[in-house]
């Protein structure tokens, strides 16, 4: 039970919800860039939340499935083709052994999650199956997948596929899970150091994601921002979504592979509920921020979480009706 990478993509790694509990050693959490896509892909194949998935960027890989299996793709839409026939994101897809999955074009988003029913069989490292590229550990051999790699399945769930193939007749509606409007954030500890003009620019200005953006952080270009006093800060803990002001006046938003500590002013933090939406924005796309308070930020995550739970219940119901498991 496995799949083979026929042609590697730009960056294909095994990721789960992240490696927590080791940041005091400088070991960052990593994990999927888009936790919503991670959750949805697993739900569509009946996996427990948190199973590792294959996270892909564009150009995405060409994959051959060596056994019958059930998969789902969520997150970025890279125009998936199964044996040259269109299949959709956010569907349960049944695969016959020998089938080839490839991707014909980047329609929306940056990273897609591919889940397989029963999960991928990789060894945990420090309690997580996420690939930490910097440490060269976790996931599949501590590295991105290469052409020729065979990725085994864990088969932790029964698979009564009855020789069917193709996509399920239903599709999860994920549109409400992403925020296509302003990216909401809360003020950071050094927000007050910004000049009044900088605060206005941050609140009302439009920022563009630059090409120097990756799983570590997204760099933004926009109206000038500066601090009133040039305070030098000693390093403190940072987290996913932290927006730091670099000495060149640019902003960097810390993403999944962020460092554990930083010494640049933390002017704001993207809220958890909107991090998936930001993660899916491509270089050149515009970002506008909107400041909210902590209560609003928590409420937004609660709404998203409930929505995901409902989606998972619906998936379980459909899977049971279609396959009896």
């Amino acid at each position: 039970m496995s799949l083979r990478i026929i042609r590697k993509g730009l960056l294909d790694t095994i990721q789960d919800g992240g490696r927590f509990g080791f940041q005091h050693l400088g070991i960052n959490p990593g994990g999927v860039s888009d936790p919503v896509a991670h959750y949805v892909a697993n739900a569509l194949v009946g996996n427990v939340a948190g199973e590792p998935v294959l996270e892909m960027h564009y150009p995405a890989p060409q994959i051959q499935f060596l056994t019958d299996c059930m998969i789902a793709i969520s997150g970025a839409n890279f125009t998936p083709l199964l044996n040259d026939t269109d299949v959709e994101n956010d569907c349960t897809i049944l695969i016959k052994a020998g089938s080839i999955l490839r991707f014909a074009g980047q329609v929306w988003g940056v990273c897609a999650c591919l889940a397989v029913r029963g999960g991928f069989a990789v060894k945990p490292w420090l309690a997580s199956k996420s690939t930490n590229l910097k440490a060269g550990a976790g996931g599949f051999a501590g590295r991105a997948l290469l052409t020729g790699d065979v990725l085994p399945f864990a088969n932790s769930l029964p698979n009564h596929l009855g020789g069917k193939s193709g996509a399920g007749s239903w599709r999860a509606n994920v549109s409400a899970l992403y925020n296509r409007g302003n990216i909401r954030c809360v003020a950071g500890a050094e927000y007050d150091l910004l000049t009044p003009a900088a605060r206005q620019n941050l609140d009302r200005g439009s920022f563009a994601i630059t090409g120097r953006s990756d799983r570590m952080g997204y760099q933004l270009e926009g109206p000038p921002l500066s601090v009133q006093v040039d305070t030098s800060l000693i390093s403190t803990g940072v987290t996913g979504g932290t927006i730091q002001l670099l000495p060149n006046g640019r902003l960097i938003v810390l993403m999944a592979d962020h460092q554990t500590t930083g010494g640049y002013p933390r002017i704001a933090h993207v809220i958890r509920a909107d991090l998936p939406s930001l993660a899916q924005k491509r270089a050149g796309e515009a970002v506008q921020f909107e400041f909210v308070d902590i209560a609003t930020a928590e409420q937004a995550l609660l709404i998203q979480h409930r929505h995901l739970l409902q989606l998972k219940n619906a998936c379980n119901f459909r899977l049971a009706a279609a396959f009896g498991n």
Binding site: Q23, H24, G237, T260
Partner: peptide, 16 residues
């Protein structure tokens, strides 16, 4: 997660 730094401790929690 706990992130001790020079003069601060950052405490990361799971809202859900």
């Amino acid at each position: 997660d706990l992130i001790p730094a020079y003069a601060s401790l950052t405490i990361v929690y799971d809202i859900v």
